[in-house]
Structures are given as structure tokens and as C-alpha cells.
Design a protein around this nucleic acid. Sequence first.
DNA 1: GAATCACATAAGCACATACTTATGTGATTG
DNA 2: CAATCACATAAGTATGTGCTTATGTGATTC
Lengths: 104, 104
Amino acid sequence: MDQDDIFKALADPTRRRIFDKLSTGAMNASALREGIAISQPAMSQHLSVLRGAGLVREERQGRYVNYEVNPDGLAEIALWLGKYRAYWPARIDALRALLKEMDQ
Amino acid sequence: MDQDDIFKALADPTRRRIFDKLSTGAMNASALREGIAISQPAMSQHLSVLRGAGLVREERQGRYVNYEVNPDGLAEIALWLGKYRAYWPARIDALRALLKEMDQ
DNA sequence: GAATCACATAAGCACATACTTATGTGATTG
DNA sequence: CAATCACATAAGTATGTGCTTATGTGATTC
């Protein structure tokens, strides 16, 4: 779950799409496949990579496996981004607005 | 300069290291090589990828080419991260503190 | 203006990665 | 308990990627 694993995991557009879908709510691997043209093994492999990177968590539920976003992975990216705050100012108003939103 | 280019660019640890070094201040390709065991062509190729992703800008200065961080690339990552703000709360205090710091 | 410097580009190669088909595994169902 | 379901893993393959050596290009220097 280091930065290398995280960036490598997110380098694949399909995995970003899977992660994005998961962000709308926890769901199992079969539900994740709906709307994404991908085979069952491919989905399983992608989820394994996302899990290894700490971007996703899983939980067995009977014969289903429920997946959900793991905030730790996102926090790691936030920390990486934070290192370069000296270069943010120009276009970062949107991000600042989001954080204000969170304060409510 | 889309998200795919950005994440692919950052997926390589050498490129993240180059970007990190550049974040300490603009410098030319030769200066960037110092302290990083990398050939001249390899450096040139990495810089080309970073530039294509919009993470870095270049400017000819005589026979040198000066490189600097391009804030647009970082802003793009911030926007990506912003989509998942619902999952931030747990560990995001550091980021929030950084933004407060910027307000000063 | 010939040599040199800073960097880019070309071509080739070793390795990584994302997919496929086939099969394995643990849990539920009839 | 046999069949089926949800998912994981294995093995093979095609493509991508990061490096190398060799060469090209534009600018400076002597």
C-alpha cells in the first residue's frame, strides 16, 4: 500500500472507472461488472490490484464479496499532493471550496 | 494532458522522483540528472512524458532547456481527488491544515 | 566554421501488464 | 450431496513501457 502501488493501480483507466463506480456505494464484483464491458477474471484481477494498493477493501458476504472504497488510499494521494502545495494557488479554489463544504 | 496521461506519467517511480526534484525549483535537464542514476536519453524521455501529461513545462534558454512544475497538472489531480471527497474525512486533516496555511 | 555542448529522437530489446480461456474454491441451493 | 453460483487463480499471449546504444539537431565556443 505504498505510493508506487497506488499510482500504478490508478494508471489503468479501467481500474479508475471501477474505483469511480465503487465510490457511488459499496457493491459486489458482479454488480461492479454491470455497465462495464469486462470479463469476470479481468474484474477480479483489477480488484486485486486496487486492494493491494489500499484503494479498496473487501468483505466476504456468503458467496458474494462486497467491495468498498478504502479512504486510506485516497489519503495517501492527498499527502502526495500536499507536498506540492507551493504550486497549487493558481487553480486550487475548487479544492478549497470542497474543503469548506466538508466543514459544514 | 488528460487524466489518463497524468496517472500514467506518475505511475513510474523515476518520473515521480524527477517531478519531486523539479518541485524544489526550476532547472535544466542536466541539473536534474545530478543525484539520479539515469542516462541522458532516459531523462529526456521521462521529461517528454511529464510534459505531455501537463505536469511540467519547458523553456529553451540558449542550448539549455529549463524545466519547471506546471500547476495545471497538479490541479487536475486535485480535481480527481475532489470527486471522492465523501471518503476523505478520516485522515484528511493534514490536507485541510495545508489549505488553511495557504489562506495566510 | 569546426568542434563541442545540451538535449531530442530512433531503433531495438527485456520486462511488465492487461487480457484471454481454463480451472479451482468456497458457499448456497435444490 | 450434486449442481450451481460468485469469485479467485493459473497459464498463455499480445501489447505497452522503460531502458540501452546510436545518431540527429540547434546553440555556443574557440
